[in-house]
Protein backbone atom coordinates (compact mmCIF):
# COMPACT_ATOMS: atom_id res chain seq x y z
CA UNK A 1 0.00 0.00 0.00
CA UNK A 2 1.57 3.27 -1.18
CA UNK A 3 -1.16 5.87 -0.51
CA UNK A 4 -4.61 6.00 1.08
CA UNK A 5 -6.80 7.73 -1.48
CA UNK A 6 -10.10 5.89 -1.15
CA UNK A 7 -11.73 2.81 0.34
CA UNK A 8 -13.40 1.75 -2.92
CA UNK A 9 -10.18 0.27 -4.30
CA UNK A 10 -9.02 -1.40 -1.06
CA UNK A 11 -9.38 -5.15 -0.72
CA UNK A 12 -11.30 -6.61 2.19
CA UNK A 13 -7.98 -7.95 3.45
CA UNK A 14 -6.38 -4.47 3.44
CA UNK A 15 -9.40 -3.04 5.27
CA UNK A 16 -9.33 -5.73 7.96
CA UNK A 17 -5.57 -5.25 8.33
CA UNK A 18 -6.01 -1.51 8.91
CA UNK A 19 -8.88 -2.06 11.37
CA UNK A 20 -6.89 -4.64 13.39
CA UNK A 21 -3.95 -2.26 13.47
CA UNK A 22 -6.25 0.58 14.59
CA UNK A 23 -7.69 -1.53 17.39
CA UNK A 24 -4.15 -2.20 18.62
CA UNK A 25 -3.37 1.54 18.53
CA UNK A 26 -6.33 2.48 20.77
CA UNK A 27 -4.45 1.25 23.84
CA UNK A 28 -1.68 3.84 23.35
CA UNK A 29 -4.21 6.64 24.05
CA UNK A 30 -4.67 5.24 27.58
CA UNK A 31 -0.96 5.26 28.47
CA UNK A 32 0.58 7.79 30.83
CA UNK A 33 3.12 8.55 28.08
CA UNK A 34 1.15 8.66 24.84
CA UNK A 35 4.14 8.59 22.53
CA UNK A 36 5.83 5.72 20.76
CA UNK A 37 9.09 6.25 18.86
CA UNK A 38 7.88 4.58 15.65
CA UNK A 39 7.99 7.55 13.23
CA UNK A 40 10.83 9.44 14.91
CA UNK A 41 12.64 11.50 12.29
CA UNK A 42 9.71 11.51 9.85
CA UNK A 43 7.98 14.75 8.84
CA UNK A 44 4.34 14.98 7.81
CA UNK A 45 2.54 17.94 6.26
CA UNK A 46 -1.17 18.58 6.71
CA UNK A 47 -2.40 20.42 3.61
CA UNK A 48 -5.91 21.61 4.44
CA UNK A 49 -7.65 23.66 1.78
CA UNK A 50 -11.02 23.38 3.51
CA UNK A 51 -11.95 24.29 7.08
CA UNK A 52 -11.58 21.40 9.52
CA UNK A 53 -11.07 21.17 13.25
CA UNK A 54 -11.59 17.55 14.12
CA UNK A 55 -9.88 15.85 11.20
CA UNK A 56 -6.84 18.14 11.09
CA UNK A 57 -6.25 17.96 14.84
CA UNK A 58 -6.84 14.23 14.79
CA UNK A 59 -4.19 13.71 12.08
CA UNK A 60 -1.81 16.05 13.89
CA UNK A 61 -2.15 14.24 17.22
CA UNK A 62 -1.92 10.84 15.53
CA UNK A 63 1.39 11.85 13.93
CA UNK A 64 2.69 13.31 17.20
CA UNK A 65 1.74 10.21 19.22
CA UNK A 66 3.94 8.30 16.74
CA UNK A 67 6.80 10.82 17.27
CA UNK A 68 6.61 12.31 13.76
CA UNK A 69 7.04 16.04 13.20
CA UNK A 70 4.02 17.82 11.74
CA UNK A 71 3.49 21.09 9.93
CA UNK A 72 0.13 22.54 8.93
CA UNK A 73 -0.50 24.46 5.73
CA UNK A 74 -3.83 26.19 5.43
CA UNK A 75 -5.29 28.17 2.60
CA UNK A 76 -5.35 31.49 4.41
CA UNK A 77 -2.02 33.00 5.28
CA UNK A 78 -0.08 30.77 2.88
CA UNK A 79 1.41 31.20 -0.57
CA UNK A 80 -1.79 29.64 -1.92
CA UNK A 81 -3.45 33.00 -1.25
CA UNK A 82 -0.78 34.65 -3.37
CA UNK A 83 -1.82 32.52 -6.32
CA UNK A 84 0.61 29.62 -6.06
CA UNK A 85 -0.84 26.43 -7.50
CA UNK A 86 -1.38 23.39 -5.30
CA UNK A 87 1.17 21.50 -7.39
CA UNK A 88 3.88 24.04 -6.77
CA UNK A 89 3.06 24.14 -3.06
CA UNK A 90 3.26 20.35 -2.88
CA UNK A 91 6.49 20.14 -4.88
CA UNK A 92 8.14 22.74 -2.67
CA UNK A 93 7.13 20.87 0.46
CA UNK A 94 8.43 17.61 -1.02
CA UNK A 95 11.74 19.35 -1.63
CA UNK A 96 11.88 20.13 2.12
CA UNK A 97 12.02 16.36 2.61
CA UNK A 98 8.59 15.68 4.08
CA UNK A 99 7.84 11.97 4.32
CA UNK A 100 4.06 12.07 3.96
CA UNK A 101 1.28 14.41 2.84
CA UNK A 102 -2.22 14.57 4.31
CA UNK A 103 -4.56 16.52 2.06
CA UNK A 104 -8.09 17.87 2.28
CA UNK A 105 -9.49 19.68 -0.72
CA UNK A 106 -12.91 20.84 -1.94
CA UNK A 107 -12.30 19.27 -5.36
CA UNK A 108 -12.72 15.51 -5.81
CA UNK A 109 -9.62 13.76 -7.11
CA UNK A 110 -7.00 16.21 -5.87
CA UNK A 111 -5.32 13.63 -3.56
CA UNK A 112 -4.99 11.23 -6.50
CA UNK A 113 -3.40 13.94 -8.63
CA UNK A 114 -0.98 14.81 -5.83
CA UNK A 115 -0.08 11.14 -5.44
CA UNK A 116 0.72 11.03 -9.14
CA UNK A 117 3.35 13.76 -8.88
CA UNK A 118 4.78 13.04 -5.39
CA UNK A 119 7.05 10.15 -4.41
CA UNK A 120 5.93 10.19 -0.77
CA UNK A 121 2.67 8.65 0.55
CA UNK A 122 -0.46 10.78 0.16
CA UNK A 123 -3.40 10.39 2.53
CA UNK A 124 -6.83 11.67 1.56
CA UNK A 125 -8.42 13.59 4.46
CA UNK A 126 -11.56 14.31 2.44
CA UNK A 127 -11.86 15.40 -1.21
CA UNK A 128 -15.00 17.10 -2.50
CA UNK A 129 -17.91 14.71 -2.52
CA UNK A 130 -15.63 11.76 -3.38
CA UNK A 131 -14.29 10.04 -0.25
CA UNK A 132 -13.13 10.48 3.34
CA UNK A 133 -11.40 7.14 3.87
CA UNK A 134 -10.19 7.58 7.46
CA UNK A 135 -13.76 8.52 8.48
CA UNK A 136 -15.06 5.31 6.86
CA UNK A 137 -12.45 3.29 8.74
CA UNK A 138 -13.17 4.91 12.10
CA UNK A 139 -16.91 4.34 11.63
CA UNK A 140 -16.25 0.67 10.83
CA UNK A 141 -13.96 0.37 13.88
CA UNK A 142 -16.56 1.97 16.16
CA UNK A 143 -19.28 -0.39 14.92
CA UNK A 144 -16.97 -3.42 15.24
CA UNK A 145 -16.19 -2.50 18.85
CA UNK A 146 -19.90 -2.15 19.70
CA UNK A 147 -21.27 -5.10 17.73
CA UNK A 148 -18.33 -7.48 17.30
CA UNK A 149 -18.58 -7.49 13.52
CA UNK A 150 -20.34 -5.73 10.64
CA UNK A 151 -21.36 -8.97 8.93
CA UNK A 152 -25.14 -9.22 8.63
CA UNK A 153 -25.86 -5.90 10.36
CA UNK A 154 -28.37 -3.45 8.92
CA UNK A 155 -26.71 -0.05 8.70
CA UNK A 156 -28.80 3.03 7.83
CA UNK A 157 -27.11 6.19 6.52
CA UNK A 158 -29.41 9.20 6.81
CA UNK A 159 -29.09 12.65 5.23
CA UNK A 160 -27.59 14.36 2.19
CA UNK A 161 -26.12 11.16 0.79
CA UNK A 162 -25.56 12.64 -2.68
CA UNK A 163 -22.97 15.21 -1.59
CA UNK A 164 -21.47 13.23 1.27
CA UNK A 165 -17.93 11.88 0.98
CA UNK A 166 -18.47 10.29 4.40
CA UNK A 167 -21.44 8.31 3.05
CA UNK A 168 -19.40 7.15 0.07
CA UNK A 169 -16.46 5.88 2.14
CA UNK A 170 -18.88 4.34 4.67
CA UNK A 171 -20.75 2.47 1.95
CA UNK A 172 -17.58 0.91 0.52
CA UNK A 173 -16.24 -0.23 3.88
CA UNK A 174 -19.60 -1.43 5.25
CA UNK A 175 -20.32 -3.45 2.09
CA UNK A 176 -16.80 -4.90 2.07
CA UNK A 177 -17.32 -6.15 5.63
CA UNK A 178 -20.66 -7.77 4.85
CA UNK A 179 -23.25 -5.29 6.17
CA UNK A 180 -26.62 -4.52 4.56
CA UNK A 181 -26.66 -0.80 3.80
CA UNK A 182 -29.73 1.41 3.38
CA UNK A 183 -29.61 5.15 2.66
CA UNK A 184 -32.40 7.63 3.29
CA UNK A 185 -32.96 11.38 3.03
CA UNK A 186 -34.69 13.98 0.86
CA UNK A 187 -35.37 12.40 -2.57
CA UNK A 188 -33.31 14.99 -4.50
CA UNK A 189 -30.28 14.07 -2.36
CA UNK A 190 -30.49 10.28 -2.81
CA UNK A 191 -28.38 8.82 -5.63
CA UNK A 192 -30.48 6.02 -7.16
CA UNK A 193 -27.38 4.55 -8.78
CA UNK A 194 -26.22 3.23 -5.39
CA UNK A 195 -28.78 0.45 -5.91
CA UNK A 196 -26.32 -1.02 -8.44
CA UNK A 197 -23.94 -1.76 -5.55
CA UNK A 198 -26.63 -3.51 -3.52
CA UNK A 199 -27.53 -0.49 -1.37
CA UNK A 200 -31.22 0.05 -0.59
CA UNK A 201 -32.28 3.62 -1.46
CA UNK A 202 -35.46 4.98 0.12
CA UNK A 203 -36.81 8.40 1.08
CA UNK A 204 -38.97 6.71 3.72
CA UNK A 205 -37.16 7.07 7.05
CA UNK A 206 -39.45 4.58 8.79
CA UNK A 207 -38.54 1.94 6.24
CA UNK A 208 -34.82 2.75 6.49
CA UNK A 209 -34.71 2.61 10.28
CA UNK A 210 -36.89 -0.47 10.84
CA UNK A 211 -34.70 -3.11 12.53
CA UNK A 212 -31.53 -1.08 11.85
CA UNK A 213 -28.56 -2.04 14.08
CA UNK A 214 -26.54 1.08 13.28
CA UNK A 215 -27.64 4.58 12.26
CA UNK A 216 -25.09 6.93 10.73
CA UNK A 217 -26.56 10.46 10.82
CA UNK A 218 -24.93 12.77 8.26
CA UNK A 219 -24.42 16.45 8.95
CA UNK A 220 -26.98 18.64 7.20
CA UNK A 221 -24.80 20.93 5.13
CA UNK A 222 -26.65 24.15 5.82
CA UNK A 223 -24.50 25.95 3.28
CA UNK A 224 -26.54 24.05 0.69
CA UNK A 225 -29.80 25.38 2.13
CA UNK A 226 -30.07 28.06 -0.57
CA UNK A 227 -29.83 25.57 -3.41
CA UNK A 228 -33.51 24.60 -3.10
CA UNK A 229 -32.50 20.92 -2.94
CA UNK A 230 -33.33 20.94 0.74
CA UNK A 231 -36.61 21.44 2.54
CA UNK A 232 -36.73 23.86 5.48
CA UNK A 233 -34.79 22.85 8.60
CA UNK A 234 -38.10 22.39 10.39
CA UNK A 235 -39.40 20.06 7.71
CA UNK A 236 -36.08 18.19 7.52
CA UNK A 237 -36.15 17.57 11.25
CA UNK A 238 -39.73 16.37 11.05
CA UNK A 239 -39.13 13.90 8.21
CA UNK A 240 -35.51 12.76 8.56
CA UNK A 241 -34.40 13.90 12.01
CA UNK A 242 -33.19 11.27 14.49
CA UNK A 243 -35.37 11.73 17.55
CA UNK A 244 -36.46 9.43 20.35
CA UNK A 245 -39.57 8.80 18.23
CA UNK A 246 -37.79 7.78 15.01
CA UNK A 247 -35.12 5.88 16.94
CA UNK A 248 -37.86 3.69 18.42
CA UNK A 249 -38.30 2.13 14.94
CA UNK A 250 -34.76 0.75 14.99
CA UNK A 251 -33.49 -2.36 16.76
CA UNK A 252 -33.62 -1.85 20.57
CA UNK A 253 -29.80 -2.13 20.74
CA UNK A 254 -29.17 0.14 17.76
CA UNK A 255 -26.26 2.55 18.07
CA UNK A 256 -26.09 6.07 16.62
CA UNK A 257 -23.06 7.58 14.87
CA UNK A 258 -22.46 11.09 13.55
CA UNK A 259 -19.26 12.28 11.81
CA UNK A 260 -19.65 15.77 13.31
CA UNK A 261 -20.03 18.64 13.64
CA UNK A 262 -23.66 18.15 14.73
CA UNK A 263 -26.55 20.53 14.08
CA UNK A 264 -28.39 19.77 17.30
CA UNK A 265 -32.14 19.76 16.84
CA UNK A 266 -31.89 19.48 13.04
CA UNK A 267 -30.56 16.09 11.86
CA UNK A 268 -30.28 14.75 15.41
CA UNK A 269 -31.81 15.70 18.75
CA UNK A 270 -29.58 16.65 21.69
CA UNK A 271 -31.09 13.96 23.88
CA UNK A 272 -29.96 11.28 21.37
CA UNK A 273 -26.41 12.68 21.27
CA UNK A 274 -26.26 12.51 25.06
CA UNK A 275 -27.94 9.08 25.32
CA UNK A 276 -26.33 5.70 25.88
CA UNK A 277 -27.13 4.85 22.24
CA UNK A 278 -24.65 7.43 20.96
CA UNK A 279 -21.15 6.33 19.93
CA UNK A 280 -20.17 9.81 18.76
CA UNK A 281 -17.37 10.39 21.28
CA UNK A 282 -15.85 6.91 20.76
CA UNK A 283 -15.82 7.79 17.04
CA UNK A 284 -13.61 10.78 17.78
CA UNK A 285 -11.23 8.73 19.92
CA UNK A 286 -11.10 5.94 17.34
CA UNK A 287 -10.34 8.54 14.68
CA UNK A 288 -6.94 9.20 16.25
CA UNK A 289 -6.18 5.46 16.45
CA UNK A 290 -7.21 4.91 12.81
CA UNK A 291 -4.98 7.76 11.63
CA UNK A 292 -2.08 6.37 13.67
CA UNK A 293 -2.64 3.01 11.98
CA UNK A 294 -2.73 4.58 8.50
CA UNK A 295 0.42 6.63 9.13
CA UNK A 296 2.22 3.58 10.55
CA UNK A 297 1.03 1.44 7.62
CA UNK A 298 2.28 3.89 4.99
CA UNK A 299 5.40 5.29 6.68
CA UNK A 300 6.35 2.63 9.22
CA UNK A 301 8.27 0.17 7.14
CA UNK A 302 10.91 -0.16 4.49
CA UNK A 303 9.88 -1.00 0.98
CA UNK A 304 6.95 -3.36 0.62
CA UNK A 305 7.87 -6.62 -1.02
Amino acid sequence: MQDLLDLESLSKQDIIGLLDLSQNMVEILDRPIKKVPTLRGKAIVNLFFEPSTRTRNSFELAAKYLSADVINVQKSGSSVEKGETLWDTARNLAEMAVDGVVVRHQVSGVPQQLADILDVPVINAGDGSHEHPTQGLLDALTITQAKGSLAGLKVAIIGDVLHSRVARSDIWVFLALGADVVVSGPPALLPQKYEEFGVEVTADLHRALTDADVIQVLRLQRERQSSKELPSLWEYHLRWGITSHSLSWAHPDAIVLHPGPQNRGVEIDSEIIESSRSRILPQVRNGVAVRMAVLFRLLGGGHDE
Partner: peptide
Protein backbone atom coordinates in the same frame (compact mmCIF):
# COMPACT_ATOMS: atom_id res chain seq x y z
CA UNK B 1 3.50 -6.45 25.15
CA UNK B 2 4.03 -5.97 21.41
CA UNK B 3 7.32 -4.26 20.63
CA UNK B 4 6.61 -3.65 16.93
CA UNK B 5 6.37 0.12 17.41
CA UNK B 6 9.75 0.21 19.19
CA UNK B 7 11.92 -1.70 16.71
CA UNK B 8 15.23 -0.10 15.71
CA UNK B 9 15.14 -1.57 12.19
CA UNK B 10 11.74 -0.33 10.97
CA UNK B 11 13.21 1.46 7.98
CA UNK B 12 15.08 -1.63 6.77
CA UNK B 13 12.34 -4.23 6.79
CA UNK B 14 8.96 -4.66 5.12
CA UNK B 15 5.93 -3.38 7.00
CA UNK B 16 4.62 -5.77 9.62
CA UNK B 17 1.54 -5.13 11.74
CA UNK B 18 1.51 -4.90 15.53
CA UNK B 19 -0.50 -7.08 17.88
CA UNK B 20 -2.41 -6.20 20.99
CA UNK B 21 -0.63 -4.90 24.09
CA UNK B 22 -2.64 -5.66 27.23
CA UNK B 23 -0.47 -4.25 30.02
CA UNK B 24 -1.66 -1.06 31.71
CA UNK B 25 0.10 1.58 33.78
Amino acid sequence: LDIGLYRDDLANRPFSPVNQTSIRA
